[in-house]
Structures are given as C-alpha cells and as structure tokens.
C-alpha cells in the first residue's frame, strides 16, 4: 500500500471508529444508535433551513481549522485559536457598533479589525517562542484565558455594565437576503465565501510563495533552515501572526454573520479547540481543512437535533469528535496495522 493511500485511510478509519464508539456508548446507555444517527442526519440535511444553518456552522470551523493547520505546517501548535477567535469576535463587533460607514468600507474594516486583533494575540506567543524559546502551547493556553476575561471586561465597559453589545449596523453585516431566501431564513451569511477564499489564500501562501516555502522549511527542520540562511525567528513570528489572523476572522464570522453582536462569556466557545480536530483530520492541508470543517461543523450542528428527535444528549457528538482526534493522533498504530494487513496479503499471494 502506498504512503499516500495510508495517509488518506488513517483519517477515514478514525472517523468510522469514532462513529462506532459513539454507537456503542449509545447502545450501552440504553439509547438506539440507529435512531440517534438518523436524528443526526436529519439535523444536518433535514431541509433547506438546516442545510443553511449547517453551512453557517461550517464557516468558522473552516477558518479555525486553517489557523491551526497553518501553524502546524510551520512546526507550531497553536492551541490559542480559541483566544484569538474571541478577541477577533470582539474587535469585529466593536467596529460594527462604534461607527456607521458605507458598507464597502465598513464591512472590510470590521473584518480587518478582527484579523488584526487575532494576529496581535498570536504575535505574543510567537515573539516569546522566537526570543525566549518558550513553548507556544502553554503561552497560548494562558492567552486564551486572558482573552476571555479581558473581552468580558471590555464588553462590560462598552455596554455600560451590560453583558452584550448592541447589534452591529447593517453596513457591517455579512448577512445577505439572497442566501436567507434560498435557505428558508436560516442565518447563513456571506462569510462562507470569505472562508473559502481564505482556504485558497492559505494554499497560495504555502505552495506558491517564498514565504510559504520558508515557513514549511522551518516546520520541517529549524537548524537546516537556519543553515540555509533563513531567518527562523522571523518565520516563527510570522506563522503565529498569520495563524492568529485566520482565527480572528473566524471570530468575525460570529460577530458579523451569525450573531451580529458580542456577549460576555462564562466559558470558551469551543470552536478554537475543534479547529485542532479539523486541522488534524485534514492533515494540515487546505483541502483537508475543507473536509474536516465540513465533517465537524455538520456533526456539531446536526447534534442539536438529537435531544428532540431521539432524546439523546448532544454530548454524544462531542464524545465522537474526541474519539476521532484520539485515533488520528494515534495514527502510528493504525498505520502499523494497515502495514501488517497488506504484508499478509502479499504473503498469501
């Protein structure tokens, strides 16, 4: 079996194993897994409205997945996508509320504000990694909590003690009448177009530019890149900044499309952490991210139908997602088993 095929098989096998584990758990705890998965299916593809909402859910997952994948390609593990998303969400909503401008200026400005906020939040761990060799995982986890508390405080200040901002001006909104009419008035918005364009942008940066070549080289081997004359520190910081910008834009999707405001949060949104799953499943490639985001976004939105239609708690889908990550991470053992299986076939011949 060629390497390429095994690489593709690992995520697929992981997804199947994850769904199987989910079925077993439903069975053991006294639910009917067939009913459960039927409810999940209907929750994703039931009618035009649910399809619209599913695509809406996929949108931030695409960008969060891109953020994690981009950092991974440069050898960095950005767990801070969650925090970068939260500051991006706030920045976009703030620009959306604070000023009223013509749409052609206002909307891009709000999106750029989100990207810049996310990039700044990614810059700090990037700088500390480059200058002090501090592991980015811990710093980004800490930055997540700082983002959560700081944005909550800012929201309170902006809204005079309230726990959410006003709705953004229509000139900053991503909603489109055309998409709403198409999908029976779901909250589907134009963000999906932006997210797909960003998938293309990531592909272009990584595959067609010198910067992308250097980023990947640093990801493969820092010392070799240094020896070849690349500025490793600059590349580490740039990778985190670009990754953070993607994450910030994911926040803009929520601020300008889905909710049109920002409210203070008791805990994390989870989108950033799921972005890790998206990137891993997609093997950190732009196309793979589309696959991963579609799968996890659909699962997440479809799960909302499970309590009503089958009486099963939505957490079952979170369990499935966790198990999928677990198996993708343990890819070594799946590869080993595949290798053994194909070796046996050869012997039999």
């Amino acid at each position: 079996m060629s390497n390429r095929v095994t690489n593709l098989l690992v995520p697929i096998i992981s997804v199947i194993l994850g769904l199987l584990v989910g079925a077993v758990i439903m069975l053991v705890s006294g639910y009917n897994p067939l009913e459960g998965y039927a409810a999940l299916w209907n929750g994703i593809f039931g009618d035009m409205y649910t399809i619209g909402e599913t695509i809406r859910q996929i949108t931030p997952y695409l960008l969060a997945g891109l953020a994690v994948a981009f950092a991974f390609r440069s050898g960095l593990f950005n767990i801070g996508v969650e925090g970068q998303l939260i500051v991006g969400w706030f920045a976009a909503a703030y620009v959306g509320v604070a000023v009223e401008l013509p749409k052609i200026i206002h909307l891009p400005l709000a999106i750029i504000a989100a990207a810049v906020a996310g990039a700044l939040w990614g810059f700090v761990p990037g700088l500390l990694k480059a200058k002090f060799h501090v592991h980015e995982v811990i710093i980004t986890i800490m930055m997540n909590y700082i983002a959560l508390h700081v944005t909550n405080a800012l929201i309170r200040t902006v809204s005079d003690g309230g726990d959410r901002t006003e709705n953004i001006f229509a000139s900053a909104s991503l909603r489109s009448e055309f998409l709403e009419n198409l999908t029976e008035f779901s909250r589907l918005h134009l963000g999906i177009v932006l997210a797909l364009v960003m998938v293309g942008v990531m592909w272009f940066i990584l595959e067609k530019t010198t910067l992308g070549f250097e980023l990947k080289a640093v990801g493969f081997n820092k010392n070799a890149s240094q020896y070849a004359g690349m500025n490793v520190n600059k590349n580490i910081i740039l990778a985190m900044v670009i990754s953070g910008a993607f994450a910030g834009m994911a926040g803009a999707m929520e601020a300008l499309g889905t909710f049109e405001y920002v409210s203070s949060k008791g805990g994390f949104t989870g989108i950033g952490f799921d972005g890790i799953a998206v990137a891993l499943l997609g093997m950190n490639t732009p196309l793979g991210v589309i696959f991963g985001a579609t799968l996890f976004g659909s699962l997440k939105y479809g799960a909302l139908n499970m309590p009503n239609a089958a009486g099963i708690p939505i957490e079952i889908v979170e369990i499935v997602i966790a198990v999928i990550i677990f198996f993708v991470a343990s890819g070594y053992i799946i590869r080993l088993l595949l290798l053994r299986a194909s070796a046996k076939k050869k012997e039999a011949k």
């Binding site: 758990i25 767990i79 890790i276 957490e315 079952i316 966790a322 990550i325």
Partner: peptide
C-alpha cells in the same frame, strides 16, 4: 493532541 482529546472526552462523557 492526545491530551486535548482527553479533555474533550472527559467533559463530553461526564455531561452525557
């Protein structure tokens, strides 16, 4: 990554 999976799994499983 495995640790992240443990975190997701624990919260989901216990809430379930």
């Amino acid at each position: 990554v495995s640790g992240v999976a443990i975190n997701l799994l624990a919260v989901a499983l216990s809430l379930y």
